[in-house]
Amino acid sequence: MTNQQQNTILGLVLLAVASVWTWLVIDTIPPGFGDGDIGPRAFPLIFGLSLGALSILLLIQAYLRARGVEKPEGQGAEAGSSIHWIPAFTLLVEISFYGVLLEKTGFVIATMVIIVLVMWLNLKVRSPLKIGLMSVGTTLTCWIIFEKILGIYLANGTWINLG
């Protein structure tokens, strides 16, 4: 995907975000009373409108560049940087799963499980020794440092708890 195509998609997404945001702001936040009371609606509304205006400018810029009126930014029209969508989405799911596990099983079990999962799935590590050492080592080190030495509260599980 070229820079211009990426900028066009970004501009469209941001314009949609700005439109929905502005609509929600008008629909759900009351305005001020006047006479110096700006009210809680004004700033979110200004920001939403500003984002809308800036995304329209981005779209115009992308259109002009696509027509060759303006020189593209970066290294050239074809230099669109790559986004690794699958690792990004996988990590989003894994962190969310980690959050659920922390609440249900507590820090010790949740951390060991998530490290095993990440090493197996993301890093493609197949050595049980390496996975075991990494998961137990990291979990215990964190547990000792945070819970025991620094006194930081780590999650306790509602189903089961080890630490």
């Binding site: 989003l92 990291t138 999650a155």
Partner: peptide, 27 residues
């Protein structure tokens, strides 16, 4: 990065003891 992942979760959770913050951090 694996260690940083765990530290991220510990950091986000310990602020308000809420898993919601871990989801926010991920998003």
């Amino acid at each position: 990065a694996v260690v940083v992942l765990v530290l991220c979760a510990v950091g986000a959770y310990s602020i308000r003891n809420s898993a919601f913050d871990i989801y926010s951090m991920a998003v």
